Computed example of a mutant assay.
Amino acid sequence: MRVGFIGTGSMGSILIEAFIQSGALSPDDLIVTNRTIAKAERLAATYPGLLVVKSNADVIRDSEIIFICVKPAEYKSVVDDIQGGIDAAQIIVSITSPVLIQHLEALLPCKIAKIIPSITNFVLSGATLCVYSDRMADEDIERLENLLSHISAPIRISEEHTRISSDLTSCGPAFLAFFIQKFVDAAVEKTGISEEQATQLASEMVLGTGKLLTTGGFNPAALQKRVAVPGGITETALRIMQKELCGLFNNLIHTTHAKYEEDLEKVSSRFFDAKGQIT
C-alpha cells in the first residue's frame, strides 16, 4: 500500500514518523511533498527509502491513501491542484478541522475521510478522531482505522462535534502541560524543590493517572473520590480548585469554538461564494 502526504509540517511529520516507528508503514511505502521541499528532504534523510516528489500531482498519481496536512488557508489551492488527477478509488484524508466533508465532496470525486490527530500519536498513544463521508465503504474505513490503530485509538465522531472533541484530544495535551507547568512553578517557588525533580514527579503522575483513567477502571469523579479522603489534604485542596477554576473551562471552550467558527467561515468562503456556488 502506497500512502502519500501533502504537507510535512508539524503534524504531517508527526504522523509520518509515528507510522514508520510503529511499523505500520516502512519508508518505502511513503511518498511525500511539501511547499518547502527541504523539509520533506530532511525526513527522507532520516528515513532512507521515503520518496520525496516535487508536486502534489506526483503524490496523487502514485498513492492509494493521501493525507493532506496543510493549513486551512492553503487547503483550497491544494484541492484545485489535485482535483483533475484523482480518481474515485483513492482516499483523501484531511487533518484540517475547519475543512468540512461537504467542502471536499463538492470538488473531489474520491473517497473522503477527516481525521484529527494529536501530538500524543508521536508516542503511539492518544486518540485519533475520525469522520467519514458516505463514499467510504466499510472496508475503506477498516483499512484506514487499521493503519491509525498502530499509533492511536481511532474514535469515530460526528462532524458537528469536531471542535469539542479536538479540544479534549488535540488541544488537551497543551492545556494539561500548561497546568503541569504552573503546578511545577508553584512547587519550586514555594518549597525550593528543584524544577527538574518537580517536573519528573509531575510527569510520572500524569502518566500513571492516564493509565488509571484508561485501563485502571476509574473515571475522573471516581478517581478524585478515591484519592480525596474526607477531611484530608487532597479534599481541602480540591475545594480551592473548585472555587478558583469555576467558569475557566466554559470560557476556554467558548474561546476555542469562536476561533473555529472564524476559521470555518474563512475556509467556506474559499470553497463557496455568497450564493453557495463552488468557487
Rank of each mutant, 00 (worst) to 15 (best):
L213Y: 00
T236C: 14
G12H: 00
D62G: 05
D62F: 12
I278R: 12
L223I: 13
T128Y: 03
T209Y: 01
S94Y: 07
S166Q: 11
R35A: 06
E64D: 14
N121H: 04
G217F: 10
T191G: 08
A113H: 03
G192K: 12
A222V: 07
E105P: 04
V227L: 14
M136A: 00
L238E: 09
M136K: 02
L176K: 13
G4C: 01
D140M: 00
A177P: 01
S125E: 12
I16V: 12
S268D: 11
P117I: 02
M136C: 00
S194Y: 08
D81G: 06
A274H: 14
I91D: 05
V53L: 08
L104Y: 06
S55G: 12
A274W: 08
I14L: 13
G192W: 07
G192C: 13
A222C: 10
P48N: 09
I155R: 01
D29K: 05
V79T: 07
T255Y: 06
D62V: 10
K211E: 11
I60A: 05
A89R: 14
K225V: 14
H150N: 12
P173M: 09
F178T: 15
G276M: 08
Y132F: 11
A222T: 13
E74Y: 08
L100A: 14
T256C: 05
R156D: 04
E139V: 01
L147W: 04
N34I: 00
I37T: 10
H150W: 07
N121I: 07
E195K: 15
L168F: 14
Q90V: 03
S97D: 13
E159W: 04
T214D: 09
S10F: 13
Y132V: 00
I278E: 08
A40R: 03
A137Y: 02
V188I: 09
C246R: 15
S97A: 11
Y75K: 01
I157C: 03
I14T: 15
D138R: 04
S170F: 07
I31K: 06
L144D: 02
S152R: 02
I86K: 00
T162F: 02
A187Q: 09
D134G: 11
G232M: 14
K266A: 15
L30P: 00
I60D: 02
K225P: 08
F175K: 10
I91V: 11
I68P: 02
P48V: 05
P27D: 07
E262L: 09
I115M: 04
